[in-house]
Amino acid sequence: MTRKQRRLTLIAAGGAIIAVALALVLTAMRDTIVFFRAPSDIVTMDIKPGTRLRLGGLVAEGSIVREPGQRVVFVVKDANHAITVNYTGMLPDLFREGQGVVAEGVLGPDRRFTADSVLAKHDERYMPREVADTLKKQGLWQHTGDADPAGATQ
């Protein structure tokens, strides 16, 4: 093999791998991305039923209903709207009424949301950032830490 051929082989191999990777990335980006939506977005944006979403907001006070078989129904709300969520399975330890939550799942035709995973915060000083941002935008933001003076000074 001449020097030129060797260089060409190297460039071709690199080009091929990068092209394949690019194709994979682009298809995956089209198919697997999940958008974050607040309840108001779902109402105002007229999202098609069957779309996979991450729904974020506050768990409405008094809305958690536990049914037999580890089924849970609760309402996620923001300043203007509320969406009912069905979920079967284990809830995070810090899942509580009046606190931030992000549920990932599918929007049904009746605007009920069926979640397959529910994330709450991980630490009582911390709230899912998307939820915090939405609430700030709607002027609803308040520090939700449980009387945590040091947390407030940070």
């Binding site: 980006m29 697997t32 991305i33 999940v34 958008f35 974050f36 998307e130």
Partner: peptide
């Protein structure tokens, strides 16, 4: 706001 998860 989007999330890119395990499927990607």
């Amino acid at each position: 706001k989007i999330s890119v998860g395990a499927p990607y």
